[in-house]
């Protein structure tokens, strides 16, 4: 990462590089925050789960880096524990990861400039998961548009590498916590998302979608096991969007 002043013939070329590095490092720094800390604790919980399921340290670290979506990873562990076939496991994980597509659809246009190369966007999409998405959506308005890919690279690489290290560490030191503390640890993830999701909503319809999703999630979990997330997301999200349209129409009419 060192800048070799003498090796660069064109000094003007350096300025954009330094800007990229600056914004990359600001992305790195953005991870050292409460959301980053909470994600670390969620991965502490995941490592415990994977260890109980009989996975090795190497397999769990590999899964964390290559999947990088906590709900999908938890579903995959569940499928392994249940002795599911490769196809059934892949289907279950795919169902739990559908939500990543609209998240990427929402994020990508905010990072894109006419000069952005396609492969950069495809590579960066691997880092999209709830925490990095929320961090980016919260911060992008303070980041110059042409620096957003550098900034997001900082967020994504830092979160993935730190949490791969966290998973390995938990495997090595897996001591015995009191049951109350492990329960509190498992409770961190829902509480974090409960608050951060509310704060990251772009429009009022986002709050409506969240409330309806909270209510319908457990209902469809009972009624449509296996399809609960898809059904809750589609119905609650669709209803919130309908509410948004009706409200827009009423505002323009009145």
């Amino acid at each position: 990462m060192s800048e070799k002043q003498s090796a660069e013939p064109d000094r003007e070329e350096q300025v954009p590089d330094e800007r990229h590095l600056t914004w990359y490092l600001r992305g790195v720094r953005r991870c050292f925050s409460i959301p980053g800390l909470v994600l670390v604790s969620a991965f502490v919980g995941f490592a415990g789960l994977a260890r109980e399921a009989g996975l090795t340290l190497e397999q769990t670290v590999f899964m964390t880096g290559i999947v990088w979506a906590l709900p999908g990873q938890v579903v995959l562990i569940g499928a392994i524990l249940a002795g599911n076939s490769l196809f059934a496991a892949a289907f279950a994980v795919a169902l739990s990861s559908v939500r990543l597509a609209p998240m990427v659809v929402a994020l990508t246009p905010e990072m894109r400039t006419p000069k952005t190369r396609k492969w950069v966007l495809y590579a960066l999409s691997h880092f999209v998961a709830i925490t990095s998405w929320v961090l980016a959506m919260e911060s992008f308005h303070k980041v110059p548009r042409d620096m957003r890919t550098a900034f997001y690279t900082g967020i994504g690489t830092t979160l993935v590498l730190v949490n791969m290290g966290v998973v390995a560490t938990v495997f090595l030191v897996a001591g015995r916590l009191p049951v109350q503390l492990t329960a509190a640890l498992l409770f961190l993830t829902p509480v974090y998302f409960l608050t951060s999701l509310w704060g990251s909503a772009r429009e009022r319809a986002g709050h409506v979608a969240m409330i309806l999703g909270l209510a319908l999630g457990p209902v469809f979990h009972v009624l449509l096991p296996g399809f609960d997330l898809l059904a809750a997301g589609g119905v609650a999200g669709g209803a919130a969007y309908f509410w948004h349209r009706v409200r827009l129409k009423r505002e323009t009419a009145g």
């Binding site: 709900p71 329960a183 609960d228």
Partner: peptide
């Protein structure tokens, strides 16, 4: 995009609610 944001938010909200109502591990007790 308003629609996909609504669906994405609702999906994550459903995951949260299920983690609270139907938790795993020691939290289930």
């Amino acid at each position: 995009l308003v629609f996909v944001r609504c669906v994405a938010t609702a999906l994550v909200a459903a995951v949260i609610a299920n983690l609270i109502v139907f938790p795993s591990g020691t939290l289930a007790d």
